Amino acid sequence: MAGSTLPRRALGRLLRELRAKAGKSQLAAGLSIEVSKQTIGRVEDGQPARISTAQFRDLLDFYGADDDAREEVLGLLQEVKAAKGDPAGGWWRAYADLLNSHFDHFMSLEQACVRMTTFQLTLLPGLLQTPAYRRWIEATTNPAMSAVEVERSLELTARRQRRLAEDGEFSLDVMLSESVLRHQVGGREVMAEQLLHLAQVGALPNVSVRVIPFAAGGHPGLIVQSFTLFEFPPLSASRMTEPPVAFVEGFTGSLFLEEDSVIARHRSAVTNLRQVALDEDDTRRLVQELVEEYAA
């Protein structure tokens, strides 16, 4: 089972959601394909289990899964097989991936995690973006995107942002280079609105926003570059802790990292970045100063 666990974990979450939506127990699901309740639990926890593709198809029939859900599950099964041949500790996902291009691993992790820590050098993370800010990103990334597709993307971003207001254990820890605040994405008016929104979201009890000012000089983030660290709740069946995942984005694809030593280096980077970042109060003052500057 060498290789990334990411596709297998995503598959398990999706199957758990489908079972819950169908109102079926793990015992009933196991009986429907002639495996144990414990096997269903291992699959849903993203653990290795001996279930054939034919059995997965029968399980989808038992859950009454629609065509879109079936396509996602079978696509993830292909990714699980592909991941076995990769070196342990990482999973490269190209944006044009033909295995299962409509499944977004980043958003899957974002919805499943209980803590999300991110450092950004150039742009705000999606959970903090206003519609106007996001619209500029979409127009720049894909100028051929239709108006309808842009609006659908904005709706998706809004749905993702609901996590910030949900009851529960989810928390967001954001560290930003001052350059993120000074790049005039979409123009001065868009940035004034965006930074006002940033200040409002940063006041939420489960959100921390801190800026690393230019005055800090050289700092580890310039070497590490932008990244996001996802941490998860205990697995439902085994109560073991689901391993963290570090995400690094490139222009043509994304790298999801799971190796313990790599996670430890990103944790160390977080610690070092916090030492040079402004505290939350000073960050709010800087953001307000820039709002007034953009609005002038």
Rank of each mutant, 00 (worst) to 15 (best):
W92Q: 10
L176A: 11
D104K: 08
P233R: 06
H219G: 03
A199N: 08
A69I: 03
G202H: 05
L156I: 13
E259Y: 06
L77V: 11
I40V: 13
V270E: 07
V276A: 08
A96L: 14
P205M: 05
Q55N: 07
V287A: 13
E178I: 07
Q161L: 07
A54V: 14
Q111G: 12
K24P: 03
P48M: 09
L273H: 06
E280M: 09
N100E: 07
R42T: 02
A295K: 03
K21L: 13
A10N: 13
E44S: 07
V174Y: 02
G23P: 06
P220M: 08
A192D: 00
E259K: 15
N142W: 04
L123S: 10
F227W: 09
V73Y: 07
A69R: 03
D86Q: 15
F62G: 06
E280C: 12
V201N: 02
V248A: 15
K21T: 14
G30S: 03
G218N: 01
R115S: 15
P244W: 04
E249V: 02
L196W: 00
M107C: 13
I40T: 01
V148G: 00
S146P: 00
S108D: 15
A269F: 04
P48N: 11
V224N: 04
P244T: 09
L18R: 08
V174F: 04
L257H: 05
L15G: 08
L15M: 15
